[in-house]
Amino acid sequence: MTDRPILVTGACGRLGKRLVRALHRTSSVVGVDRRAFDDKPADVVHEQLDVRRKKLKDVFRAHRPRAVVHLGIMHDPRASAAEHHSWNVSGFAKLLEYVAQFEVPKLIVLSSANVYGPQPDNPQFLSEDAPLLGGARFSEIRDLVEVDILAQSFFWKEPRTETVILRPVHILGTVRNAASNFLRLNPIPTLLGFDPMIQVIQEQDVVSAIVRALEPQVRGVFNVAGPDPMPLSHAVRILGKAALPVPYTLGKLAMRRLWSLRLTSFPAPELDHIRFVCMVDDKRARELLGFRPQVPLAQTVLSVLEETWNG
């Protein structure tokens, strides 16, 4: 059993590499990514391929993984909607097919707390059974919602596989996601008269949550939160940056304009994230996973400024 590896999709992303490094000391690891894995640890097998290819099946057949960790979700806001959808949803559907066919005992899907979506009538802390409204205004996140829902139906259809869906809050660190990129801006644009409470988590804490979810018997949906929530302005203060408050209507217009000129990677509906609350209740993860974030708040926020983070 122990010689069966853990298969990690999206292994060459910054989070993927961190996870692979955390896993390879205690288990064999197979990375799958269409990018090349430079500075790969020697004992890690890397399969450079597109998850939509038939070849993925050979990888399952050859390695017989004991667990699959799916991080391979494309966030590139510049890729076309069709490319996005085919990669994220069709690719994931293929992956699920193989997980079922080769009876992989464990599947971990990294979703996101963004699937709930920022709404003016959100409860301060959303539990796992809150509706996934993230796609209502913000079409780019519909893929992610679809992936999450596919994983949920897989949970019921294939009881032999322990399916775990992790919904972490904004991941900060060396990762190149919207939240980290946003905090790298200087000055940081904010919306005049809005300062919502936000939750963030350091990428290393996400890795430890995934490691905990790999334990046998763990299954289900888990919100994963980092240290205490804070107002957005507090993050700006920690970074020692200036905030540039913009009226909402002006901000929305400017973002549409910049987006159509390809001058920004933030689509206009993302503004709701710095306008409304989208925070989660992580009680389940604390109780059932025994997960506690280790990186303190200030360090979590500051880690976006570092190229390599060794906290």
Binding site: M197, P227, P231, P296
Partner: peptide
């Protein structure tokens, strides 16, 4: 209060 000297509701 939390680390950011506000409570979870802000």
């Amino acid at each position: 209060l939390g680390t950011a000297s506000v409570d979870p509701f802000g």
